[in-house]
Amino acid sequence: MSGIALSRLAQERKAWRKDHPFGFVAVPTKNPDGTMNLMNWECAIPGKKGTPWEGGLFKLRMLFKDDYPSSPPKCKFEPPLFHPNVYPSGTVCLSILEEDKDWRPAITIKQILLGIQELLNEPNIQDPAQAEAYTIYCQNRVEYEKRVRAQAKKFAPS
């Protein structure tokens, strides 16, 4: 494992614990031996107030490669969400998460999670990743928002 990646992720964890947006979660997972795995984080993004996503808490896994922060983490909703920019596998399609697009090593975990929260309610229809959600979003916004509200209710924190 890269010392650069681990040191950056340790800084990220410290900064997150000191200050993070209300309702968001970002925690490194534990290895079988109980030690912390900084390369694999369990996160959760709350649906934004005043949107059909409100009330939901959407679980996301963030996986970092050894060359982080040169390369972005892979962000994957578990379980996958109904959304035009979420692949059926759950992987998020967002330009700041793509090395050859808008990724920059200075982007923080907090910025990534806030960017994904923004994307939930403002899909990028130029870059669809899920045919069904994309089609319904474009053709029947009322039905799309109904499905999103049902999903938010399903993923409401207990």
Rank of each mutant, 00 (worst) to 15 (best):
Glu12Tyr: 02
Ala129Asp: 05
Met36Trp: 00
Phe22Gly: 08
Tyr134Ala: 10
Phe155Cys: 11
Gln111Leu: 13
Asn85Glu: 06
Asp33Ser: 02
Tyr87Asp: 01
Lys146Ala: 14
Pro123Gly: 00
Met36Glu: 05
Glu132His: 09
Lys154Asn: 09
Pro69Asp: 03
Pro46Met: 05
Pro123Phe: 02
Lys59Val: 12
Leu81Pro: 05
Thr51Gly: 07
Trp16Ile: 03
Lys48Ser: 03
Leu57Gln: 11
Gly23Tyr: 09
His20Leu: 03
Arg149Phe: 09
Pro105Glu: 10
Thr135Trp: 12
Arg147Ser: 13
Pro128Lys: 00
Ala156Trp: 09
Lys65Ala: 04
Lys74Cys: 15
His20Thr: 03
Tyr137His: 04
Ser95Lys: 04
Lys48Cys: 06
Glu98Phe: 08
Ile45Met: 13
Asp127Gln: 00
Arg149Pro: 05
Ala152Ser: 08
Pro84Asp: 07
Thr135Gln: 12
Lys18Pro: 00
His20Ala: 00
Leu114Tyr: 12
Phe155Asn: 15
Ser89Leu: 09
Lys110Trp: 04
Ser70Gly: 14
Trp41Asn: 08
Thr91Asn: 11
Asn40Arg: 09
Ala150Asn: 12
Leu119Arg: 01
Ala26Met: 01
Ala150Gln: 15
Trp41Val: 05
Leu113Glu: 02
Ala10Glu: 01
Leu9His: 01
Asn121Ala: 11
Leu60Cys: 14
Arg8Lys: 00
Gln111Cys: 15
Tyr144Leu: 02
Pro105Ala: 14
Pro157Tyr: 09
Ala129Met: 01
Leu113Trp: 04
Pro123Tyr: 05
Glu98Asn: 15
Phe22Ser: 04
Asp33Leu: 04
Arg17Ile: 01
Gly47Lys: 03
Arg149Ile: 13
Lys110Tyr: 05
Thr91Ile: 14
Asp127Val: 00
Gly90Gln: 04
Ile136Lys: 08
Ala26Gln: 04
Cys93Arg: 02
Arg17Thr: 01
Gly50Glu: 13
Ala5Val: 13
Gln111Lys: 15
Asp100Val: 15
Phe22Pro: 03
Ala129Glu: 01
His83Arg: 00
Thr51Met: 02
Pro46Gln: 04
Asp66Ala: 11
Glu118Thr: 09
Ile45Arg: 06
Lys48Thr: 11
Val142Lys: 15
Met62Ser: 04
Cys43Asp: 07
Thr35Asn: 03
Val27Trp: 06
Met36Pro: 02
Gly90Ala: 05
Lys101Ile: 08
Ser71Asn: 10
Leu94Gln: 03
Gly50Ser: 12
Asp127Trp: 01
Trp53Asn: 08
Pro69Gln: 01
Val25Asn: 04
Ala26Cys: 08
Ile4Leu: 08
Asp102Gln: 00
Tyr137Asp: 02
Met62Thr: 09
Lys101Leu: 13
Val25Asp: 10
Ala10Val: 11
Arg149Thr: 09
Asn121Trp: 09
Glu54Pro: 01
Glu54Ala: 09
Gln139Pro: 07
Lys153Ile: 15
Pro28Asn: 06
Leu38Phe: 10
Pro52Leu: 09
Pro69Ile: 01
Asp100Gln: 11
Trp16Phe: 09
Ala44Asp: 07
Asp19Gln: 01
Val25Phe: 11
Ser2Leu: 02
Pro157Leu: 08
Asp67Asn: 11
Lys49Phe: 13
Asn40Leu: 13
Glu98Ile: 15
Lys76Ser: 15
Lys48Gln: 09
Asn140Lys: 07
Trp103Glu: 00
Tyr134Cys: 07
Ala129Trp: 00
Met62Lys: 05
Ile107Gln: 11
Glu42Asn: 05
Thr108Val: 15
Arg61Asp: 11
Asn140Pro: 11
Lys74Pro: 08
Glu118Tyr: 11
Trp41Ile: 04
Asn85Arg: 04
Leu113Asp: 03
Leu57Gly: 06
Trp41Tyr: 02
Ser158Ala: 14
Val86Met: 12
Asp102Met: 12
Asp67Trp: 06
Lys101Glu: 12
Trp16Leu: 05
Tyr134Pro: 05
Lys48Leu: 13
Arg104Cys: 11
Ala5Ser: 13
Ser7Tyr: 07
Lys154Gly: 03
Leu57Tyr: 07
Gln126Asn: 10
Glu12Ser: 04
Lys14Leu: 09
Ser2Tyr: 12
Gln151Glu: 04
Phe22Gln: 04
Asn31Phe: 09
Ala156Gly: 08
Lys74Trp: 02
Arg147Met: 12
Lys59Asp: 08
Gln126Lys: 12
Phe155Ile: 09
Thr29Tyr: 15
Pro28Arg: 08
Ile125Gly: 02
Gly34Leu: 07
Gln139Glu: 13
Glu143Tyr: 10
Asn37Cys: 15
Lys30Asp: 06
Pro73Cys: 10
Lys18Asp: 04
Phe64Met: 15
His83Gly: 04
Pro21Cys: 03
Asn40Met: 12
Leu38Cys: 07
Gly56Ile: 02
Arg147Lys: 13
Ala152Glu: 03
Phe58Ser: 03
Thr35Val: 03
Ile4Ala: 12
Glu122Gly: 08
Phe64Tyr: 10
Tyr144Thr: 00
Asn140Val: 01
Glu143Pro: 06
Pro73Phe: 03
Pro84Leu: 15
Tyr68Leu: 02
Phe22Leu: 05
Gly56Ser: 02
Glu99Met: 11
Trp53Val: 06
Asp100Ala: 13
Ala133Cys: 09
Asn40Ala: 15
Gly90Tyr: 12
Asp33Thr: 04
Arg141Phe: 12
Gln111Ala: 14
Leu60Phe: 15
Glu99Gly: 14
Lys65His: 12
Ser2Trp: 02
Asn37His: 12
Trp16Cys: 07
Glu78Asp: 12
Val86Phe: 13
Phe77Met: 05
Ile96Trp: 04
Pro69Cys: 03
Val25Glu: 02
Ile107Glu: 11
Glu132Pro: 07
Ile125Tyr: 02
Ala106Asp: 04
Glu122Thr: 14
Arg147Ala: 10
Gln130His: 11
Leu9Val: 00
Pro123Lys: 00
Pro157Trp: 13
Ala44Phe: 02
Phe24Arg: 02
Arg104Ser: 10
Leu6Ser: 07
Ser158Thr: 13
Asn124His: 09
Gly23Asn: 11
Trp53Leu: 00
Ala106Ser: 14
Gln130Asn: 13
Gly55Ala: 10
Leu94Pro: 00
Trp103Ile: 03
Val27Ser: 08
Leu63Arg: 12
Val25Thr: 07
Glu145Asp: 13
Ser89Trp: 09
Lys76Phe: 15
Cys138Ser: 13
Lys14Gly: 03
Val148Arg: 02
Ile116Leu: 15
Tyr87Phe: 14
Asn121Leu: 06
Lys59Leu: 11
Trp41Pro: 03
Val142Ser: 14
Lys76Glu: 15
Leu57Arg: 11
Asn40Cys: 05
Lys153Met: 13
Arg141Cys: 11
Gly50Val: 08
Ser95Ile: 00
Ala106Tyr: 01
Pro72Gln: 09
